[in-house]
């Protein structure tokens, strides 16, 4: 049974991610008084891109061709180790804890940066250098965020963290946890290139960060890259909701029904998270590039204050 659930969990991520992104962009359009694309548009995009052949620059090496698969595999790996639909570890969850998960995400970012440089296109180089610079600022904040939940659960395993928060709901309103949650949400926005950092629907090439790295890709490769980045949003949002905000509503590792039931619950949670993202996307403006450091500094600071406040408060 756990194996079935394991597969079900990864399938949820694979299938759910495009829907989640489609729903967010539809909601944003509605907020902006536009009709917007259908929520299923990302599936159509994927289908179209997967049918097309990929054109590869004759300057590019195997790194360029291999990168989409590595990146996709990275996110797929993360999908098996974090609590998405079950609150108990599934067979492959031993692979890594949260910090290990962050390493896997780091590997994906590294591979994308390599691939972006490989074609020697200026767009890719710009995107890669910006993304790497931001990554170097995100990492320390992310580690501190893990510390804030780690302090409560005395662990860096996402399942134990989930369990610790669930078993003493009082922890949810502890300053440490509140601050950690806030900082993690800011990092989710940064990692996925949402609005205070960059405009996900923007089309000005010079200001692209996330899209700039994959601008050379086409066809099948591009489909994988897009899909991977949607999965990233889906995964980080799920971790945010399942570990930080609402640790309830997950199935156990032995009942298929529980796992299946957890999927609509997860959809509800993600609807909340997506709503928050939509609100932020439509009410703030993009920060100037050099202000991003301040945004990340603020996230770092909040997480740091969170860790410090845990010094005195103990559950």
């Amino acid at each position: 049974m756990p194996v079935v659930l394991q597969v079900l969990q990864s399938l949820t991520v694979l299938v759910g991610a495009p829907l989640y992104v489609g729903a967010i962009s539809r909601a944003e359009s509605i907020v902006a008084s536009k009709r917007g694309p259908s929520v299923f548009q990302p599936y159509r995009d994927l289908a179209k891109l997967l049918r097309k052949g990929a054109s590869v620059s004759d300057q590019a090496s195997w790194v360029y061709a291999g990168a989409p698969f590595v990146v996709f595999a990275c996110y797929l790996t993360v999908s098996v180790i974090v609590p998405i639909i079950t609150s108990q570890p599934l067979p492959l969850a031993f692979l890594a804890d949260l910090i290990g998960g962050a390493f896997v995400l780091g590997l994906a970012a590294f591979t994308m940066a390599l691939a972006a440089l490989d074609t020697a296109s200026p767009q890719g180089g710009l995107g890669a250098s910006r993304a790497t610079w931001m990554g170097s600022l995100v990492e320390p904040a992310l580690i501190l965020v893990f510390f804030t939940v780690g302090v409560l659960s005395a662990s860096d395993n996402p399942y134990l963290m989930n369990h610790a928060v669930r078993s003493s709901p009082y922890a949810l309103v502890l300053p440490t946890h509140v601050l950690g949650t806030l900082a993690f949400f800011m990092l989710v926005l940064v990692e996925n290139g949402r609005i205070p950092i960059e405009n996900p629907s923007g089309s000005i090439e010079i200001s692209m960060i996330e899209e700039g790295r994959v601008t050379e890709y086409s066809g099948r490769h591009y489909a994988l890259m897009r899909w991977a980045s949607w999965m990233k949003l889906f995964l980080l949002s799920s971790i945010f909701m399942n570990v930080f905000v609402i640790p309830w509503g997950l199935g156990n590792a032995h009942s298929l029904a529980g796992g299946l039931l957890a999927i609509p619950v997860l959809a509800g949670k993600l609807a909340l998270c997506g709503l928050a993202i939509v609100v932020i996307d439509s009410s703030f403006a993009k920060l100037r590039f050099f202000r991003i450091a301040e945004f990340l500094g603020a996230a770092f600071l909040i997480a740091l204050v969170g860790v410090i406040t845990s010094y005195v408060v103990s559950v």
Partner: peptide, 26 residues
């Protein structure tokens, strides 16, 4: 006591006060 509802509210609002001080600073 810190685990009562009142205590929690107090702690939360003081965290808010600290963050507001940071916001002022920034």
């Amino acid at each position: 006591s810190s685990s009562s509802i009142d205590g929690t509210l107090l702690t939360l609002s003081s965290v808010g006060i600290l963050l507001a001080a940071f916001a002022c600073l920034g």
